[in-house]
Design a protein around this nucleic acid. Structure first.
Lengths: 133, 133
DNA sequence: ATTAAATCAGTAACAGTTACTATTTTTATT
DNA sequence: AATAAAAATAGTAACTGTTACTGATTTAAT
């Protein structure tokens, strides 16, 4: 049975108000303002739990630590090749790729996980700035 | 300057003949037949190097250790939710999803990384077997 | 108020990977 | 073939991110 915990609530609220997909470490250090002696283990445990019950999302980008997204509803993510930032990305009409993938496959495709890569708006700007003088 | 090394060559050949996307640990233990005192560090170093120069691919699936694919040409991957196996998957006509993703995005989409999930052919079979008696 | 279960803080352990160092291989030059 | 510089190696230590353990605290039902 799941019991209320202020720490868990604080972690969830913290994530709900952030859009930069922080790491467990970031959640830990930031939440320390409110809970000066919260444990890193508590942060990891609650992040895992919240992800499991679908209240947040865990992003394993492949490089560096996992990141967490306070928006539970399904959406895509963009990772900047230059600065490494992670941005939310709403892309419609991508469900059909499961069908495409299943075309020549004897198993059963149930879902997919996609990360988009490139230059974020900021880094795209930067590049223009440097290349035109 | 890149110098030849038999260990690197062996690692590359080993991967070229495997289609199960082994982990560094697996490469290490298997390649020990030929090089009894090869170092795990050597395996990691060469896997990273081969991936960097594009002769193999590194797969970060998000759970467990990274896996390696001896086929350098771009293709997709399927991960079985049940047994965890990783299979190659050829899916055509998926380049356009970069365009779709860039529709309402001010940055620049340069690529994407997609993993498909579901039941592999074997596990799909299993399920049928158990549910029909 | 009492109690049992859940959660906690603190810390140790763990997995996967990278970094360091002294020795060996490779390869270009004599 | 011998020499020498650069690259790679084996072996091991260290590191990063995460999980597991333990005894104390908090929650929530009685």
């Amino acid at each position: 049975m799941l019991k209320y915990s202020r720490q868990r609530e604080a972690i969830k609220n913290f994530l709900a108000n952030r859009y930069d997909h922080p790491t467990a470490e970031t959640v830990y250090t930031e939440i320390k303002d409110e809970f000066p002696n919260i444990s890193l283990g508590t942060v990891y445990r609650n992040l895992a739990l919240l992800a499991e019950i679908g209240e947040i999302q865990k992003l394993s980008t492949g490089f560096g630590p996992d990141r967490f997204d306070g928006r539970p509803e399904p959406h895509y993510h963009f990772i900047c090749n230059q600065c490494g930032c992670v941005l939310d990305l709403t892309v419609d009409g991508l469900d059909h790729i499961n069908v495409l993938a299943g075309q020549d496959f004897d198993g059963e495709i149930e879902g997919h996980l996609t990360y988009f890569y490139g230059k974020c708006p900021n880094c795209k700007q930067e590049k223009v700035k440097f290349s035109t003088h």
